[in-house]
Design a protein around this nucleic acid. Structure first.
Lengths: 337, 337
DNA sequence: ATGAAAGCGCTAACAT
DNA sequence: ATGTTAGCGCTTTCAT
């Protein structure tokens, strides 16, 4: 059995309160007693019981993290960054996968609240009324990644997805392509996915190219979804000259599908992704993509959330980070950038 | 403020003890009072405070999970599987990345113990004396993935790494190759990595081919390490005919390096990996690799660990799961398997 | 079957 | 500066 504060107090010949003061550095204790306590703590190998602490402090020092799917590289890089920062601040992380299903997301958010986490970092691609209701009702510190909270009290960390998709699409259009396809996120993805799609459409519009829904398919962000989506596009006779996938994993899947169809990338079809996961520069061909500062996003979310948890005033809530388009082999048909 | 058991008791007109009995189904309560309690619980939106529960029960219902690096696909698939099973059993998981550094691993294990987790799932590639000391001293339920615990009380989930590496290497040797290289795990990887390397050497030995250390390099399991390692091999003049990487990510990196050197895979050099991460069948070329039942491993680790936590007697502690070699394009130079 | 009460390990008023 | 004490919210004897 682990030793308790009582054991320490007894051993050091002081009261529990003094021990508490020493281990929390909460009030000045004479250096004589402090030493005695420290020695006793050492000898008994004392570590305060977090449950007892939580019970009185009403803080768990646990941050809940709800993500879509850790097996997505974007997500795991993000999670690692969050974990790293949080741990340094003395917080632990409780991770849950939602698979992006709204009802499940709500369930998980509620569950985390019931577990009395101090705050929640929530990676999602869309915000429904239900989410917002939860935020309001729970009054828990929340940091959103990829979407904007709207509310002033909610942290939002993201890039300008619309702009990024716009620029990526423009790149293809400037090359003179008229059949630029897109593998977009599911239709219920009402923020990130919608924004990216909207950037794509805007680019077409500004270039005076008619939107052709035959050139657009949907995938649930996994590599196999990209594969399926691309195959559908390849078989419907529209012969896209370029394909823009809403995330890198789908781009990898799409390239695989294109290769399997006997076509080449980028010679026959150029492909671009979104995220710039570590694998993007090691795939064959290396992938042109929108670089998101993933680690920075994770760190920032954790940092701001902890500030709120600890009652500091957070200057900026809705943070839009810069992105960058990284050109690699998958779009290197005619020109090197 | 969340309501407490006292509020519920007052509202239902019963004692706290009765409320406790109802919400825990611990003792029979007359259906009349039970209803009253349930109604009050509902009306007050009561959820028991986990800290208070932990304090008396000495159980946190939290499982600590120490992994090398979530951004490795093998790891994230594993983590997802663990999380999924644990959540269904009412356990939450606390994940930490060790980066495979022994001293850090020990620190993290100790930290989790201090957090009073109910048990630990530990993914590591080697077991040092320090680890074993911790296991013994902590007397915490432990499940090891990828290594064998040795001890009877410790769960070990893995495949026969040595045999798998042996078979993979034999495949190359049977093709008549004499210069089969290996990108092995770091030398301080004293179990998984050592076993895989040892399988490689055994295969050479049984085929009567001299071991050539010029054909072997080391990498820390990340894609960039595979890249670097392969480049080193390509530049030292040994001209390997085939390359066997200790994990899929390094195989991807190696392929990239081979391509960058102007050679082709599998035409000039065949490449095989280890793990069979989801990406393996979508890379270009698709990757021949040792298929590990990753999800099964995660589920099993969680399942067995929870059994131990809950005091059930676990029949089998050291579980060796079957593997399978999956042949794909990266080794399809001369024959299709 | 139900309730009263003790206590889990800690913090924070309040005394001294 | 230090100690005493009253909880935090729950489970669990022990009575009834």
């Amino acid at each position: 059995m682990p030793s308790t504060i009582d054991h320490v107090a007894k051993r050091a010949g002081v009261s529990k309160a003094t021990v508490s003061r020493v281990i929390n550095n909460s009030k000045t204790v004479s250096s004589e007693l402090r030493m005695k306590v420290l020695v006793a703590v050492e000898e008994l190998n004392f570590v305060p019981n977090p449950a007892a602490r939580s019970l009185v402090s009403k803080k768990s020092r646990i941050i809940g993290v709800v993500v879509t799917d850790v097996t997505n590289l974007f997500v795991s890089v993000l999670v690692k960054s969050i974990e790293n920062y949080a741990l340094n601040q003395g917080y632990n992380i409780m991770i849950i996968n939602s698979n992006g299903i709204t009802v499940r997301e709500i369930d998980l958010l509620l569950m985390l609240k019931d577990k009395r986490v101090d705050g929640i970092i929530f990676l999602t691609s869309h915000l429904m009324q239900e989410h917002k209701l939860f935020f309001k009702a729970s009054s828990l510190p929340i940091a959103l990644i990829n979407v904007s909270g709207g509310d002033e009290s909610i942290i939002g960390i993201r890039i300008d997805n619309r702009r990024a998709a716009f620029e990526m699409t423009c790149y293809f259009l400037k090359k003179g392509y008229t059949r630029v396809g897109m593998i977009r996120a599911p239709r219920d993805d009402l923020f990130t996915g919608k924004e990216r799609f909207s950037g794509y459409r805007q680019a077409l519009k500004e270039s005076g190219i008619a939107y052709n829904e035959q050139l657009v398919t949907t995938g649930s962000l996994r590599v196999e979804d990209g594969y399926r989506a691309a195959r559908a596009l390849l078989e419907n006779g529209t012969e896209p000259e370029a394909l823009f996938a809403a995330c890198d994993l789908m781009a990898f899947g799409a390239i695989r599908a294109i290769l399997d169809s006997g076509r080449k990338v980028p010679e026959d079809i150029e492909v671009a992704g979104f995220d710039d996961v570590p694998m993007a520069s090691y795939y064959n061909p290396t992938l042109t993509t929108v670089h998101q500062p993933i680690e920075e996003m994770g760190k920032l979310a954790a940092e701001k959330l902890i500030e709120i948890i600890e009652g500091k005033t957070v200057d900026q809530c809705d943070i839009v980070l810069p992105f960058e388009i990284v050109f690699r082999e998958s779009t290197a048909k005619t020109d090197k950038y």
